[in-house]
Nucleic acid binder design. Structure first.
Length: 260
DNA sequence: CCATCATGGATAT
DNA sequence: TATCCCTGATGGC
């Protein structure tokens, strides 16, 4: 789940449930006890997402959460004992939210938040994002586009599923050096992100196909129907075999017949 | 029961 | 490029 859309969806939900409320914070697992205590019973001002990062802003400080590969939130509508692995529990009114397995959950200063903004590339889910920064970053890199799309300093929020899908939609060979891409291809990558990420936020799933093609609503699509290549065996377009390629340290799925 | 794998990323070399 | 960290689901024995 945790590519950029997941974090933006969480920010939206948690903003709705918790902003303006005084929160009860705890760390049943114990590894965030100090931070939870520091901000316990403070009023949450707002929740925001930047790329794959989640920020809970209080007047007294900010809680930064990065889910990594394993992080997960679970939501309850009635009180219940948290499992032992819960790093952070947030409670207010009749909502209980438990966070397990994050790469990071810590209290940040405003300076640290600024530094994060500095080091991340433009986030296609941010209405203010500047596509020129994305174009410029690609023009500077000779590494393969497949690896470059995972670099959060180039564009914030893309993960292993979206990168495979974006490359397929653009019919791009993942091994192409980023700076060799024609302007039209770079343009298309950005436009596809701006088009698809909000679908991810809305549905809380990565969907890059057109549900209409299957004659059913997005919520009813099977997993292999929601994507063009990721973890698929055959290509929807040419029926050729989908191949796996190690790229940027992760497994990239692509169709050699269609891409390139 | 245990090994493997996963939508991520920091750090060491 | 390799190693490590975070957790949980799954499949083989």
């Amino acid at each position: 789940m945790p590519e950029g859309h997941t974090l933006h969806r969480l920010a939206r939900d948690h903003q709705r449930w918790f902003a303006g409320h005084v929160l009860s914070l705890s760390s049943p697992q114990g590894r965030f006890s100090e931070g939870a205590r520091a901000l316990d019973q403070c009023e949450l001002v707002r929740v925001e997402a930047i790329g794959k990062h989640l920020l809970y802003r209080f007047r007294e400080g900010t809680i930064h959460v990065h889910l990594g590969l394993f992080g997960k939130f679970r939501v309850w509508r009635e009180a219940r004992e948290p499992r032992n692995s819960v790093r952070l529990r947030i409670a207010a009114g009749d909502r209980w939210v438990d966070l397990t397995g994050p790469t990071d959950c810590s209290v940040w200063s405003d300076e640290q938040v600024d530094a994060l903004r500095q080091r991340l590339g433009p986030d296609p889910l941010d209405p203010q994002a500047d596509p020129a920064r994305f174009q410029a970053a690609l023009a500077r890199r000779r590494r393969p586009i497949g690896a470059v799309l995972l670099d959060q300093a180039v564009v914030a929020g893309v993960g292993n599923v979206y990168r495979a899908e974006l490359l397929f939609l653009g019919r791009l060979d993942p091994r192409t050096p980023a700076r060799d891409l024609p302007a039209a291809a770079v343009d298309r990558l950005w436009r596809d992100m701006v088009r698809l990420f909000p679908v991810g936020v809305r549905t809380n799933r990565i969907i890059t196909t057109d549900p209409g093609d299957f004659g059913k609503p997005a919520s009813r699509l099977r997993r292999d129907e929601r994507v063009w290549v990721y973890k698929r065996r055959t290509c929807r377009v040419c029926d050729g075999a989908i191949e796996r390629l190690e790229s940027g340290g992760r497994t990239l799925y692509w169709c050699p017949g269609c891409q390139g």
